[in-house]
């Protein structure tokens, strides 16, 4: 990853971004910690606008990118829940309903935050969840549905992680993105447990190596997860501890760039 490039890009969008940061921190300080949860998206947007004035492009771009992924997930689960006979009643339906509610909440939260910042909310694309015929039974076969769900969740975790550095100049936006990021990871963990319990894939709640437990169709979402070296520190057998290569890869989730994620979701978006 080249952070120098990312930051240069932000600076091109907003040449004074780094000089503005300390001033912006004072605004947040005076604002304090008394923001009620329900008003947070508005507060987020307006504070963000105060800090950046009209030049909010770099961060609203990130938020609109996140919104596009949340649109995808929300509509995916909404359609699945509306597909009779797809999801067994009881615990499975309960879990997917919980996840759907979160994805719909993320859509609403991001839209409000973007408008509050004076940005333009990106329109919802038209989705094709068969990915051009790659997953023809996505809303009729439970195993296929859960395989696509796992891929979306694991990809979502990697997508948010890949944007953290782009949000480092905005405390409030960064925190909100992190709070969504870990919810996607909770979803991924549960979907993976559902697949395992149903015998659909030999997967754990965490990602081992770059194994998807699904097949080559989704491999791009897992490539890169196999690294065992973090910031120059080799994790396998670190300091004489019995840490296997599998454990070393599981212990750290890896980011994906925006380009990589957009290439992954492209088949699901009708041009």
């Amino acid at each position: 990853m080249n952070f120098g490039n990312i930051l240069n890009e932000i600076e091109q969008a907003d040449p004074e971004v780094f000089e503005r940061t300390s001033q912006r921190r004072d605004i947040f300080k005076s604002f304090g910690a008394k923001v009620a949860v329900a008003v947070l998206p508005f507060a987020l947007g307006s504070l963000f606008k105060k800090a950046y004035g009209k030049n909010t492009d770099a961060i609203t771009d990130v938020l609109n990118y996140a919104l596009t992924l949340e649109y995808l997930e929300a509509e995916f689960y909404n359609k699945a829940l509306a597909s009779a006979g797809l999801i067994p009643s009881g615990a499975p339906n309960g879990a997917i309903s919980t996840i759907a509610a979160h994805e719909n909440a993320h859509v609403a939260f991001l839209k409000t935050a973007i408008s509050g910042a004076g940005g333009t909310v990106v329109a919802k694309p038209t989705f094709d969840f068969t990915a051009g015929g790659a997953f023809p039974s996505v809303f009729s076969d439970y195993a296929t549905f859960l395989a696509v769900a796992q891929t979306f969740e694991d990809t979502g975790v990697r997508a948010y992680k890949g944007q953290a550095g782009n949000l480092i100049t905005s405390n409030e936006v960064l925190t909100a993105a992190l709070q969504i990021h870990s919810v996607e990871a909770r979803h991924a963990s549960h979907i993976r447990q559902m697949r395992k319990a149903n015998g659909f894939g030999d997967v754990k709640p965490w990602i081992t190596g770059k194994d998807s437990g699904i097949g080559s169709a989704v491999q791009a979402s897992y490539n890169g997860e196999e690294v065992t070296n973090q910031a120059g520190v080799e994790i396998v057998g670190i300091n004489g501890q019995v840490i296997s290569a599998n454990a070393a890869t599981e212990a750290f989730d890896e980011p994906l760039s925006k380009d990589a994620v957009l290439a992954i979701v492209k088949p699901f978006i009708v041009p």
Partner: peptide
């Protein structure tokens, strides 16, 4: 703690770990 970190490198490392903690929590 994410917002308290100044270095983008450390922020990414925290991000790599927190999602694994979230997977644990869910399990």
């Amino acid at each position: 703690a994410g917002k308290l970190i100044v270095s983008a490198d450390y922020l990414l490392l925290a991000g790599k770990i927190v999602s694994v903690e979230a997977r644990h929590a869910a399990y």
